[in-house]
């Protein structure tokens, strides 16, 4: 295990050696607890238990089948994303989202990596297929943008700016677009600021778009990809009045990552623990 200690012992080396997934898990659990106890967004405890159980069981089953080591950290993170973003009137659809999310990692692959962001595809498929589900982008309100921004900065410290370029580029483009729209509408500054402070957008940008596995390998491609998602989301929302447009924009755009990876060569990301095994 000695080789897992970063050398030389600089702050940035230590930070980079920490598996970011612990941090993401911590932030997501924090958000879930905040939503439950402070924002009064109540989810049936059974939904929580069954969603996590379904994700874990699916992960174990596929890992056994493909004879892979069982790693539950990513699974737990995907499940937390589902619990934070998805609502359903029945536990069944939460479980279905969990199963789709995890299965997609093993079934829909190109080369040595999966194509879809697991929680994103799980949520989007269920939203499209089952009328009994919904995503509530209003639930976070406008009051917590500062906390979310701090949490996002933590993620940038851990993953490094380069790996967070999709999120950063998404937010930058989104800000640009809503300010241009406000300028075109001759609306007061309060309008774009209000749109920007929506907790759901920030959670999506920094927790879902930050997944280093499914975003493009090259830093430049990540910038393009983030900007594209912002552009596409705004198009869906303002032209077609689609609710939760950013979730759909990401799901539909994932094949674009394959193209970007061909066009722009970059290094595939691996979680620190996996690196240690080599």
């Amino acid at each position: 295990m000695t080789h897992s200690i970063p050398y030389p012992l600089t702050t940035s080396n230590i930070l980079q050696a920490i598996d970011t997934r612990y941090y993401q898990f911590f932030v997501q659990v924090g958000l879930f607890v905040w939503a439950t106890f402070y924002l009064d967004v109540l989810m049936h405890p059974m939904h929580v238990v069954l969603t996590i159980a379904a994700g874990v069981i699916t992960q174990i089953a596929f890992s056994r089948y493909f004879k892979l080591p069982i790693n539950l950290l990513s699974t737990l993170n995907s499940m937390m994303s589902i619990l934070i973003l998805l609502h359903s009137s029945s536990w069944m659809w939460m479980v279905l989202a969990a199963i789709i999310a995890i299965s997609s990692k093993f079934i829909i692959r190109c080369g040595d990596k999966h194509i879809f962001n697991p929680s994103n595809i799980g949520i989007v498929m269920v939203l499209l297929l089952v009328p009994e589900t919904w995503a509530d982008s209003g639930q976070w309100g406008q009051g917590m943008w500062f906390i979310l921004l701090l949490a996002s900065l933590g993620l940038i410290l851990l993953l490094g700016i380069s790996r967070m370029l999709t999120s950063i580029s998404f937010i930058a483009t989104f800000i640009g677009l809503i300010f241009i729209r406000a300028y075109w509408l001759d609306a007061p500054l309060a309008l774009p600021l209000h749109q920007l402070q929506n907790g759901a957008i920030l959670i999506f940008a920094f927790l879902m778009l930050s997944d280093p596995i499914t975003t493009p390998n090259s830093a430049f491609a990540r910038i393009i990809f983030g900007a594209w998602i912002a552009l596409f989301s705004c198009f869906l929302q303002y032209q077609f009045f689609v609710d939760n447009a950013f979730l759909y924009a990401l799901a539909v755009s994932m094949p674009l990552v394959l193209v970007l990876n061909r066009l722009f060569i970059g290094k595939q990301y691996h979680w620190p623990r996996k690196q240690r095994r080599y």
Partner: peptide, 14 residues
């Protein structure tokens, strides 16, 4: 017909 109507761009409190 389907269920509760929610506001998507503001928070709703009970």
């Amino acid at each position: 017909r389907k269920g509760q109507v929610k506001i998507t761009n503001y928070r709703t409190i009970k």
